[in-house]
Design a protein around this nucleic acid. Structure first.
Lengths: 329, 329
DNA sequence: TTGTATGCGTTATCAA
DNA sequence: TTGATAACGCATACAA
């Protein structure tokens, strides 16, 4: 196309457009450039990747749900870093469904992605991913994962334990927990943190106070309502998700309970909503955007043949009215 | 690879794996299947697309910012529909920056995407996209756009006018507006709706009450604060965005004004947050998720050679405490 | 029923 | 300084 218009061979065109260090007459070069501009020619990335054997500059991002706060902030971090590095991001919402995860992996492999970022998976200990041949694809996980990939991590256990500690410090003695599904690794880890926090505070672990939910607002509301209806009592509540906390607070209000006076509440992930609701919700913040960016950096490093290590990030307690009954120590 | 392992020609392998309607001996077929399974072979989508001339089953999605509520709901709709149709979505955050938009388009074209969905662009009347050769790529726009592509649309003008009408009905006489940047088409259209609503209610248009912002929470807060500091008074406020409305409400509260008694407030987009804040925010809802899905449907139709028409969706007023001073008529 | 050869758009090797 | 040609992995027209 460009070649014939410029009256040159495709070889020459390729050389000019890729600035291959080979002497080319100025006139021919100009003609090629002109033709390319006029046709607004763009090299076919498919052909280039095929020929060069691999690199597509594409990253597959597997997340549970882009419309959940945790994930879209993370995603923005990934996308920015990817774009800056000349990579493109394929968005894959898995809803934590192993089937979807597998189907997406299949597509991503067919499309020859260079790398995959896992976030919000680790369901059923990743049985469905066991024994898989990952080939040359670079894989990074954000958050807990059972497979031996480099990870971008935050101490979820300590985070929830700290939340419990805070509630205890605020005078709570019976602390409930809006937890996540039992077969999600993240839930199990946070659950451990919950127990750990109780023990550290010298409080008893009451299995009944573990209110399992799917981490959504609606689910948090339902679980809490069910617990209250069943006559359960508690004076503190930590939710593994801000949305769950908000749902719980709705159920508490509906039952005539005051936050934080009757029940002090703290969430997790520090969603954008948290400071805006009434009362403002205490939460545990993670540097999600940065974590997304770092996941991409790790991929770049792996592509460069460097050894990468897990990266750990700190959490931060954002204490607000929903959990504050007395001045902080 | 698979061919040699199965002791067959690549032709046969291709035929078996693609179920080409050609007689093949059962034994050979089994061997091919076995080899493919053992190697867990996946056809190289790059090569397939190259050979078949085009179709990559990929959609480029250009949005302003995945971390903004409007866009991640829309995106989820796009993603679900795309996945169901065997398409893959490349996420492109443009931040409404024409430069980023152009750079992303370049990449998408190189990668031979089949289609592009524009949402949250239309900046400066899309000067940077004028006269462009779009080639065989199918383009659909969600929301207002200056270029002649099929669109998924909602009557933004009427929506904002209705919001103004509602405030007027609630007794507001001086209505301010947290608008968007002047060079964003969406802002201009909503601004028209604002004026139209004022006129319909027999209220005067006061240029001073147009408080320009970037549609973000922070921006809404700043604009409102500045207006109040300048001594402007108003008893109603419509924001082109829920986040802007929330920001505005913060500024109002800080100034000692009550919502809705002193200033009735209504937002737009009906974000997930809106019903949760205090007071719950009135807003105008669009079926964003569905709109995203329809955008994909339109692309599929275009691919099938069908003629597609613009699709219009209704808006819905969600009235809540922030704007309710009296029973609704 | 099976296989050989060609070409998709590129880049890299080799020859002129 | 330039160009013809092979090869990347695959699907298909054609041959056997």
């Amino acid at each position: 196309m460009v070649a014939e218009r410029a009256g040159a061979s495709i070889t020459t065109v390729s050389r000019v457009l890729n600035s291959v260090p080979v002497a080319i007459s100025a006139s021919l070069r100009q003609q090629v450039l002109k033709a390319a501009r006029e046709l607004d020619y763009r090299p076919n990335a498919l052909a280039v990747s095929l020929r060069k054997g691999g690199a597509t500059k594409t990253i597959g991002l597997l997340i549970a749900d882009i419309s959940a706060p945790y994930f879209h902030v993370l995603t923005r971090g990934v996308e920015d870093a990817a774009q800056a590095a000349g990579y493109t991001v394929v968005l894959c919402d898995t809803d934590r469904d192993p089937g979807k995860e597998l189907r997406y992996l299949d597509v991503l492999y067919r499309k020859q992605v260079d790398a995959i970022i896992f976030a919000g998976g680790a369901v059923d200990m990743d049985q469905h991913l066991r024994g898989r041949n990952w080939g040359p694809v670079k894989v990074v996980a954000v958050g807990p994962h059972t497979l031996p990939f480099p990870r971008v991590e935050v101490d979820n256990r300590a985070a929830i334990a700290a939340a419990v500690g805070h509630l205890a410090e605020q005078g709570c003695r019976r602390i409930a927990c809006i937890s996540g599904r039992r077969n999600w690794l993240i839930s199990e880890i946070r659950r451990e943190g919950f127990k750990q926090g109780l023990l550290a505070a010298g409080l008893a672990v009451d299995q009944q106070l573990d209110l399992e939910s799917s981490l959504s607002l609606e689910s948090g509301e339902t679980s809490t309502k069910r617990a209250l209806d069943a006559g359960l009592t508690f004076d503190g509540l930590v939710a593994f998700t801000d949305e769950g906390a908000i749902g719980a607070m709705r159920a508490l209000k509906a039952a005539g309970l005051r936050v934080p006076e009757d029940v002090a509440v703290i969430g997790c992930d520090d969603t954008r909503i948290s400071p805006l609701i009434e009362p403002p919700l205490s939460s545990i913040a993670f540097p999600l955007r940065q974590m997304g960016a770092v996941a991409v950096e790790m991929i770049l490093a792996m592509n460069a043949g460097l050894a990468v290590e897990d990266r750990h990030f700190p959490f931060e307690m954002r204490l607000r009215a929903s959990s504050l009954r007395r001045p902080i120590a």
